[in-house]
């Protein structure tokens, strides 16, 4: 958007007013990525095959995960089997904080800060990956994705649940499609190939790596897009817009006419004598 660049040239001209507005406009959601890990890998994928790492993961698993997923990840009444979940699933759930799960077993896991350190996540991922055959942590190559194609694919396949703006949306029976505001590129990619929770799988059979990269790139772009129109109002469509129009717009205007139209207290004049009947009789005017 060229308007941003033009706006920067403007700052010295209208300094005072624009400082606050520039902050408003320039406020970019999320993107507090560390420089060396912009895609959100967190773990060292080369270390996942290391038996020592797997062993440490097994120990962490025995303490934190067995109660639901069962010994060796075979599952239990409280949690599904994860023997074939693969590194991608473990990585997705652990880095997005969805595991360990805080609520009831049938409750949807929500994104929260990860419970484990990076090293612990690495150990656990290595252990889960060693349990069976599952998808590996994908290689994300944003530069191989095509932004426009990604947009088309996103609107065609993802927007129905996550909304065209990526703000997320409601599903039935208490489930929801989460907002994609802070999802990292690796997490987005992983979600598509593993289909966490209610989410369908956007499998390698149906989508090429290039297409998946395109979608990730589009979501990444959405996150950093900014809102040229001002406050985003959550990017969830006409509902918040309606509330702003009713409360701020209409409420504000009602307050304004109240102040304009209210009589000045205690200083009203006694009614003067009626205007001449000849004036009043035409009925024109108000």
């Amino acid at each position: 958007m060229g308007s941003r660049a033009r706006h920067l040239r403007l700052v010295p001209v209208v300094a005072a007013a624009s400082v606050a507005l520039a902050a408003l406009l320039g406020a970019r959601a999320g993107a507090v990525e560390e420089e060396h890990d912009p895609l959100g890998y967190v773990v060292d994928r080369a270390a996942l095959d290391d038996p020592a790492t797997v062993a440490e993961g097994a120990e962490l698993f025995r303490i934190g995960c067995v109660s639901c997923h069962g010994p060796g990840g075979v599952g239990s009444p409280r949690g599904p089997a994860i023997t074939d979940a693969g590194a991608a699933s473990a990585h997705f759930y652990l880095t997005s904080g969805r595991m360990p799960h805080a609520g009831a077993p049938d409750e949807q896991a929500r994104r929260k800060p990860p419970a484990y350190t990076h090293e612990e996540i690495e150990d656990l991922v290595a252990y889960v990956a060693s349990l069976g055959e599952g998808p590996e942590i994908p290689d994300v190559h944003l530069e191989e994705g095509d932004l426009q194609e990604g947009g088309d694919l996103f609107r065609g396949n993802c927007a129905a649940c996550h909304s065209a703006t990526g703000a997320g949306g409601a599903l039935s029976y208490g489930q929801h499609a989460p907002s994609l505001d802070v999802a990292t590129p690796v997490q987005i990619y992983e979600a598509m190939i593993i289909g966490p929770g209610q989410m369908p799988v956007f499998s390698p059979e149906a989508f090429s790596e290039e297409e998946l990269n395109s979608i990730v790139r589009y979501v990444e772009t959405l996150q950093g897009l900014g809102d040229p129109g001002g406050f985003s109002l959550g990017r969830i469509g006409p509902i918040p817009e309606g509330f702003v129009a009713l409360v701020i717009g209409t409420g504000g205007m009602m307050l304004t006419v109240f102040l304009i139209g209210r009589r000045r207290h205690g200083e009203a004049e006694p009614p003067s004598e009626p205007v001449r009947p000849a004036d009043a009789s035409t009925g024109a005017g108000r």
Binding site: S3, R6, H7, R9, L10, V14, L21, L25, P228, G230
Partner: peptide, 18 residues
């Protein structure tokens, strides 16, 4: 005046609105 300046300098929706 601000409006004129903003417009000539290339336009910017928030500043124009304000």
């Amino acid at each position: 005046l601000i409006l004129a300046v903003v417009y000539i300098a290339g336009g910017q929706a928030q500043l124009e609105g304000v």
